[in-house]
Design a protein around this nucleic acid. Sequence first.
DNA 1: TGTATGTGCAACTGGTTGGTTTCTCAAAAT
DNA 2: ATTTTGAGAAACCAACCAGTTGCACATACA
Lengths: 104, 104
Amino acid sequence: MRRDIFQAIADPTRRAIIALIAVQAMTPNAIAEHFDSTRQAVSKHLKILTECELIKQEHQGREIYYQLEIEKMKEIDKWLEQFRQIWESRFQQLDQLLATIQKK
Amino acid sequence: MRRDIFQAIADPTRRAIIALIAVQAMTPNAIAEHFDSTRQAVSKHLKILTECELIKQEHQGREIYYQLEIEKMKEIDKWLEQFRQIWESRFQQLDQLLATIQKK
DNA sequence: TGTATGTGCAACTGGTTGGTTTCTCAAAAT
DNA sequence: ATTTTGAGAAACCAACCAGTTGCACATACA
């Protein structure tokens, strides 16, 4: 059972859930109302997201509020870092090229 | 057949391939040498990556060099943008809190 | 021309995944 | 005390996925 962030955000429904609870913590029922699938299906997604620590629970009576662990999202950002260096250097190269053209 | 960037980067082998050819364009055989799986398996990954335009081919005789489409990687960065706003505002809140404590 | 090499494609396979339905359990409400 | 409500867990299923082996085809080389 592979369970990492990249696999977690691969599913569009899960990405939608993440975006939803990023705004404010919500219960499974409230989340499920935004989708066509059943609450149980949403619950499964929440379980996966919880397992890779992208979200956390907050019990309040019999209700459970799910909240985004924004810190964990930074791990994706961290992975992107290596490529950001490339696209920034490409941009710099283009910049230098444009400067050279202007000089002529 | 769902084929988007997020599903493409969900697989660890594909992420490794991306990181590999980010440095320099490579042929399928050369890429496959870096992994335990067969060339055909790598070829399948390359097909998926090509389909969602994360990489592009460059034919050279009978060899095919695969190259990263760095621009496409920015789409992940773009999706992260909405969360970056959140974690930056959280940081700002913490900053203000620390400033308030110091004043006391 | 015949052979070796680089590559993609098709068929098959076991494991995973996303979904459903059914069940259980605890907390609220009546 | 009984019923309603919110939620997770288990069993099941169709679809998908990552890998394999085998094959086809083009290019390079002898």
